[in-house]
């Protein structure tokens, strides 16, 4: 049992931290790609920008400015600094519910990003700066895992993180492969793997055979890689079914949706997906993630009061 508002905040901390990490990584890869051929750089910038927002020709043409905006622009809704400020604001509201170790990590990375020296650090060495941010966020997750009780609150945190991750990777795949799978060159495909932090695990699974189809298969259906959509839906389902066990009221909504989505990915067939078009499949997955999000709200946070008065 925990306050509905607290569950809501923990869920959003999970989402915002995941989003911040993803955007920081995309921003870094976009910058690294500028060292490549111009066409590749533009292609990578287009993918990264479309995956987290809008890719205008102007933004694609100025990757350094775009990367800086993704990292540090407070007016940009999805920027790293915005997401972390929101995560930290939520954490402040549930300061009594998270351990000091967990709080400290998040507070530290927030202070580093919003501090007066952030812009200078980014200009002096953007890659190192972004790399440190990502490492800090990993420390946050580690601290949460190692110091928080693995109870209801922790599950809401992880539910938010995995739902967000499924949607972020889903959007990335949609941008890359939604219109067919064989249009991207080798450096771009490698960049896509890096964007999902999947390069090394992919190479171990498929060797250095970097092609679009196995990449899509790996990021959609791999059972063990923590950023594949299948892995995320397994986690979403597991956390939701444990959360519902705490609840006295029977609410079929979000668990049913999560179970169905999990089964869909577990038993999916790559041949079928290709035949029906990866676009339709990804659209379906993203839509169901959205429904699970709404279901979580209806079941745990914004339920009508008259239904829940004790007898």
């Amino acid at each position: 049992m925990m306050l509905a508002r607290v569950a809501d905040s923990l869920y959003w901390i999970g989402r915002y931290v995941e989003r911040a990490e993803h955007v920081a990584r995309l921003s870094d890869i976009m910058l690294t790609a500028t060292l490549d051929r111009a066409e590749t750089a533009a292609q990578v910038a287009r993918i990264a920008l479309s995956a987290v927002g809008e890719a205008t020709p102007e933004k694609i043409a100025n990757p350094f400015e775009s990367a800086r905006a993704l990292a540090l622009d407070r007016l940009e809704g999805n920027s790293v600094v915005t997401s972390l400020a929101r995560a930290r604001e939520n954490a402040r509201q549930v300061r009594d519910q998270i351990t000091s170790e967990t709080w400290e990590r998040l507070n530290l990375v927030h202070l580093r990003l919003s501090g007066a020296t952030a812009a200078k650090s980014f200009n002096d060495g953007s890659s190192a700066f972004l790399h440190d941010i990502i490492a800090d966020l990993h420390l946050f997750k580690g601290a949460a895992d190692a110091t928080m009780s693995h109870g209801e609150g922790w599950r809401f945190l992880l539910l938010g993180a995995h739902l967000e991750r499924a949607q972020l990777i889903g959007r990335l795949l949609e941008v890359c492969f939604g219109r067919g799978v064989e249009q991207l060159d080798h450096p771009t495909l490698t960049a896509v793997l890096r964007m999902s932090c999947a390069l090394e695990p992919y190479l171990r699974a498929y060797t250095a055979d970097v092609r679009a189809r196995p990449i899509l298969e790996f990021l959609l259906l791999n059972a063990e890689f923590p950023r594949s959509i299948r892995f995320c839906t397994d986690e979403i389902e597991a956390h939701l079914s444990m959360l519902s066990r705490h609840a006295e009221a029977v609410h079929v909504g979000p668990e049913r949706l999560a179970g169905r989505l999990k089964a869909r990915l577990q038993y999916a067939d790559m041949g079928e997906i290709e035949r029906d078009g990866s676009h339709a499949f990804l659209e379906g997955v993203l839509a169901e993630c959205g429904e699970i999000h709404r279901g979580v709200y209806d079941a745990f946070v914004a339920y009508p009061l008259e239904m829940r008065l004790p007898a």
């Binding site: 049992m1 925990m2 306050l3 509905a4 609840a247 006295e248 339920y303 009061l305």
Partner: peptide, 11 residues
């Protein structure tokens, strides 16, 4: 007086 929790209202 109740608080709104994830599992309904608690006294």
């Amino acid at each position: 007086v109740y608080m709104r929790t994830t599992t309904g209202l608690r006294r």
